[in-house]
Nucleic acid binder design. Structure first.
Lengths: 350, 350
DNA sequence: AGCGCGACTGACACCGCTGTCAAACGTCCC
DNA sequence: GGGACGTTTGACAGCGGTGTCAGTCGCGCT
């Protein structure tokens, strides 16, 4: 027990030290750790004892260089702070942990350079794969042929990209938006407003499309005056609602393309002393954690956030495992089920 | 332009390839990248051209093995989903990115094994440092002498640990709690309830202590009946409030040890048709993002969440830089300023 | 001419582990 | 007893960078 001096003199033990103590070759130590069943029991035991005695911890850096794998994947998210994304991240992290992958977290902040810097970690072998949660595309992917693109281990989730095929996990936003709209229609609403997300965003387009589709099916004419753009933020929902409340013919129902805008909109409504849902019903989208604690608790579309994250990671793992036919199969898109959560922000239209 | 075949035949270029093309040694290429000013301009240019031509990207894995640095730090958080922590993470990530560090995200989920598994990344050189945001301590740190402990690059933030000195960043929870309490007292409240966090938690103790201290100073006797334990979750705040509302002498003001519990408590109050703040005032703690969007918007103690994260990372970087006197200096504790945010969940007591 | 010196460059060992290949070792069977 | 064959084990060559140390070179000075 020479621990007193150990701290100063001896380095952390390497596989060679273990080999020396166990009187075997380094290869055998490596095997004992990686595939114990190929090592004779007696030998294995000697090695394990040596490992225990020396307090050996394999150096991941060396292993990674040798294997040319980083055992990590970068997850780039526009904003860590967004409760929707943080739940997706949780799903990713969960499966990653189970599968021996590390999660490198990157916040793009809607900034192309920052995003590119995270994406470049692939080229530097700092990460084996890239999971993209936002609506921004790294330059490497933009300026690449389909062939090149399919050899880059990337998975997109939640958001997806027009004209660019990439493995993707999401819900059916059109159907989900239609479902939300139908809920309002069933409650007797006909003057239904829509607060959209940014319109360059495929998701926003889908949610608006679902709205229109459902309205058309119900033979209700959409009043274009009641379609107002937001940017997914609460303040934008607040502003949009203010606009709507200024219209001569106020809506009796509002469908917001996400919960944050719905929360903003609710505040605008309450400020004008109108009641939710007595005067105006509100439906959100996402089912973020706080939407159940709003006042009133928000009726919304539930997205299986953690499941989306897990599925994205699952896809990633599969790509990384059989990298051979990475470019072989068709690009995979996985659609997960959504559902309508009815709380008390919606009620019958009078 | 033989890109057709490149994909199949040639590997990604290494520093040796660049050296060959530029007709210099690998050392010179390395120098050109690491300290360009030690390389003659003409040579540097040759190298830079070769790099550009070959599309060389340095292999981080190799560099890390050589330097025995992973350029990464693990951040372990009890729950990614907690908006308070996610804001701290953001602060960490921000500074990390600026300083060339990668953030490895780990969610402990209050699970010792999981936490230990993340902490073990230090021993495996997968990470250079460890930032702990939760109230759980990894076994390595528990079972270590002060000496050993001081040689482990770890920083704790938000939470801290009794009896175990570790570099720490936080606010003055006692003073902050007193400030919140004083706000209620100034509004004329005397029957003030306290919903605490889990009492094994130093933070919870501090916040309760601050409450008692302020009450004592105001010469108001604390009614022990009005002190109820929660666990920092909204449901626990809801339950605690229900208990309080069942008391013969209801409180007119409630100070909750965090915003989530305050939100739960607010719901309980509203369910019994009492009004906030007319009948009962509520003060929270943390100033999470949604507390401004609650109904009513929550009066609370603001914690500089991003700044806490940045400061923690700053401390980490300093420790990593001068590892020489890592054990030299006294363990650092940094106290950041808090503030009271008055919204509309508090009002005068009648 | 010879020397000293500073600026620049190259050779090379090595970081610690893994995969390959061949040798050694049993074991079983004829 | 010896050969065939499957199982264990060891030697060794890298993975792709970086740091050290020793040149090489050009130039000013004695």
């Amino acid at each position: 027990m020479t621990r007193r001096t150990r701290t100063k003199t001896s380095q952390t033990p390497t596989i060679r030290d273990v080999a020396r103590v166990a009187k075997v070759s380094v290869a055998t130590v490596s095997r004992t750790l990686a595939s114990p069943d190929t090592v004779r029991a007696a030998t294995r035991e000697r090695v394990e004892n040596a490992i225990r005695k020396s307090g050996y911890r394999p150096n991941a850096l060396a292993s990674r260089l040798r294997r040319q794998k980083s055992d990590s994947i970068v997850v780039v998210v526009p904003s860590i702070h967004n409760p929707f994304f943080s739940n997706v991240i949780r799903g990713i992290e969960n499966l990653a942990h189970l599968s021996g992958y590390k999660v490198l977290l990157g916040e793009s902040q809607g900034n192309q350079e920052r995003l590119d810097s995270y994406a470049s970690m692939l080229a530097r072998k700092e990460a084996d794969g890239l999971i993209l949660l936002g609506a921004l595309l790294p330059s490497i992917l933009k300026n690449a042929t389909d062939d090149e693109r399919s050899s880059i281990p990337v998975v997109t989730a939640c958001e997806y990209f027009d004209h660019i095929k990439l493995p993707n996990v999401r819900i059916d936003n059109v159907a989900a938006a239609a479902m939300a709209t139908e809920h309002l229609i069933r409650l007797g609403h006909t003057r239904i407003a829509k607060i959209t997300g940014p319109m360059h965003n495929p998701l926003s387009k889908d949610r608006l499309a679902g709205f229109r589709q459902c309205m058309a099916q119900a033979k209700i004419k959409v009043d274009e005056e009641l379609i107002v753009n937001g940017d997914f933020s609460a303040p934008s929902g607040y502003a949009a609602m203010k606009t709507l409340l200024g219209k001569p013919m106020k809506p009796t129902g509002v469908f917001c393309s996400n919960d944050e805008m719905a929360i903003g909109a609710a505040r605008a409504i309450k400020e004008t002393r109108l009641r939710i849902p007595r005067d105006i019903s509100i439906v959100g989208f996402d089912d973020i954690r706080f939407s159940g604690y709003c006042d009133p608790p928000l009726t919304t579309i539930h997205q299986p956030q953690a499941a989306i994250g897990e599925m994205a990671m699952q896809l990633m793992i599969e790509m990384l495992q059989d990298e051979a036919d990475l470019s072989g199969d068709a690009v995979r898109t996985i659609v997960l089920p959504h559902s309508l959560i009815v709380r008390t922000s919606t009620g019958r239209a009078d």
